Computed example of a mutant assay.
Amino acid sequence: MEAFLISTGIVALAEIGDKTQLLSLLLAAKFRKPWPIIAGIFAATVVNHFLAGLAGALITQWLGPDAMRWILGISFLAMAGWMLIPDKLDDEDTKVVDNLGVFGATVIAFFLAEMGDKTQIATVALAAKYTTLLPVVLGTTLGMMLANVPAVLLGEVAAKKLPIKLVHMVAAVIFAMLGMVVLLGSQLSAWIA
């Protein structure tokens, strides 16, 4: 349950103001059909995050626990720093294949925009940390939906009212804390006991 809840919270926070959330706003403005867009975001996220989670689980099997601890700790600290850099939507991210329909265009555009994105990298790291693929993928997918469904339904009104800098700072602090806990885990356990 911890893997699911942490994954949901981290990705929901990390997604606010992210380029894929901006893409959600763009798709909503372009097509004005929220339900196929939401379904497309869900489908793209499930596939993308499953593959990312699978990569995290495989990395854990290949590396020893000490190497994995350092990689995860440093990755979470890097994610904390990355959270403080505002995202921009590139022209390439906004190219949508119109002949695929709203659902198909959303799936393709969202899947491609998510490649190498903060939330995808976070999914890899979370799956490696928790070694439980399903709860992590379900959690990160729910986090994506929690951040993107309101963006699609409420559009720019919601986006303008969210304190994006504050949300990013909170997410950065959470990532930094996770990084420190992972790096200092055995020392913290000994110190607390």
Rank of each mutant, 00 (worst) to 15 (best):
I59R: 00
D66P: 00
M68S: 14
F76Y: 03
L77I: 15
G81L: 12
M83Q: 15
D87W: 00
L89V: 08
E92D: 04
V96P: 07
N99E: 03
V102P: 12
A105G: 15
T106I: 11
I108R: 04
F111D: 09
E114D: 14
E114M: 06
M115D: 00
K118V: 10
Q120R: 04
Q120W: 13
T123M: 09
A125V: 10
K129F: 00
Y130K: 02
Y130E: 02
L138D: 03
L138N: 05
L138V: 11
T140K: 01
T141V: 12
M144R: 07
A147E: 08
N148D: 11
V149P: 08
P150S: 11
A151T: 13
L153D: 08
L153R: 09
E156F: 08
K160W: 02
K161H: 14
L162K: 07
L162H: 03
L162W: 11
I164H: 12
L166Y: 12
V167T: 15
H168G: 11
M169V: 15
A171C: 15
A172G: 12
V173L: 15
I174V: 14
I174F: 15
A176Q: 03
G179Y: 06
G179A: 04
L184P: 00
G185V: 00
S186E: 15
Q187N: 09
